[in-house]
Design a protein around this nucleic acid. Structure first.
Lengths: 198, 198
DNA sequence: ATCTGTCATTAACATAAGTTAATGCATCTG
DNA sequence: CAGATGCATTAACTTATGTTAATGACAGAT
């Protein structure tokens, strides 16, 4: 059943012939990650892409002093990876961690390379996926660059209402580049503001 | 001669058969933009990608109060576009402006769609390009999110020494999400710091 | 029911960065 | 040459956000 959903997820990006989808399915490995478990640790080279069948993962940076900065969250039916590291084969500056018990398909880079040589549909698929990821990133960049902390939070709630439910507040703060204490203050201010008429 | 360089630039991303490169060349239109001229204005749908043969362009957002935020600079031999708008056909939140007198090749989206149907090399090309852009964006995100203003400037100088020469300081400030006055202060502080031994 | 750990809130305080405005210094133009 | 323009610097001041630490709420475990 996960496989059918995987096929669905593949085809949602661009049409993949049945035979190709099957080939992929037959070569992925399923992996279960408990809450808090790392799928990739900063410094390692990322050798796979992933598909999230169940659960929720986050991708984050850490700075020297140990502070973590969330970069993305990925939930059911999404593909994710430490993309830069996988593509460049350089050690990742990112870590990937399960936020909830998660079931993921592991798609090794070597398999992807084989796919690209097997059938041109995969280049198109890879193109579309990269384009989608790029658009996501652009929206996020806009969020971080143009808006102040309070506005960023407001937009986040609007854009990802579901994640806002599923995640603890301090993880959202970290995604928005805001200190968790500041976020709490912001929420508090908002509660007073919403209607200028009182 | 621009065409040969265009072929070079194409092949630097991934191998494109001669016939395909020629087809592209024969269908692009060359456009000249004077300093300050807009190639795309916020609110318009972006209908083309571009290749910069000569000059320097910037892509930027503006906020309601008119402040501008530089998103990217593109110089000789680089491809650029208001990618999200072009892909989604939604009005662009970005503007594109020539910072120096620039000569660019216009690659209409309709042409790109035709390329994708003509020959699979273009999907691969598009994949590689999107991947490269994604990696660039990821590095930038890391820059903005993890580092304080002073550090951002230091890294910028290191990463883009040439741009640092070519651009006025306030444009760099805008790229780094720093107020130009603050950047000047930072430069001043740095001048005092570099050697802890005095 | 009590203990434990996790997370959110609040307050007092510190600091980085933004704002405004004046000044200086080139470069260009008539 | 004089004036205008565009940009960088500097200073005085304001504001947003980070820091630390104490308190409180809640959920899960024993």
């Amino acid at each position: 059943m996960e496989n059918n959903r995987l096929q669905e997820a593949l085809n949602r990006i661009t049409a993949i012939p049945e035979a190709e989808a099957r080939y992929l399915e037959q070569h992925v490995e399923w992996r279960f990650a408990g809450k808090g478990e790392l799928l990739l640790r900063e410094g390692e080279v990322c050798t796979s892409a992933y598909y999230c069948a169940e659960g929720l993962v986050r991708i984050y940076y850490s700075s020297e002093d140990g502070t973590e900065f969330n970069k993305n969250f990925f939930a059911e039916q999404m593909f994710f990876s430490a993309y830069s590291s996988m593509l460049t084969r350089e050690p990742s500056t990112l870590s990937i961690q399960a936020m909830e018990p998660s079931k993921v398909a592991v798609i090794p880079r070597a398999l992807m390379d084989r796919l690209y040589e097997r059938h041109p549909c995969w280049d198109r698929w890879g193109r579309k996926l990269a384009e989608m990821l790029y658009i996501l990133k652009e929206r996020r960049e806009h969020l971080l660059l143009v808006h102040a902390a309070e506005e960023r939070y407001r937009i986040f709630l609007q854009r990802f209402p579901e994640l806002a439910q599923r995640l603890p507040q301090y993880q959202i703060a970290s995604y928005l580049g805001i200190n968790p204490v500041s976020l709490s203050r912001i929420r508090n201010n908002q509660a007073r503001k919403p209607s200028p008429l009182g």
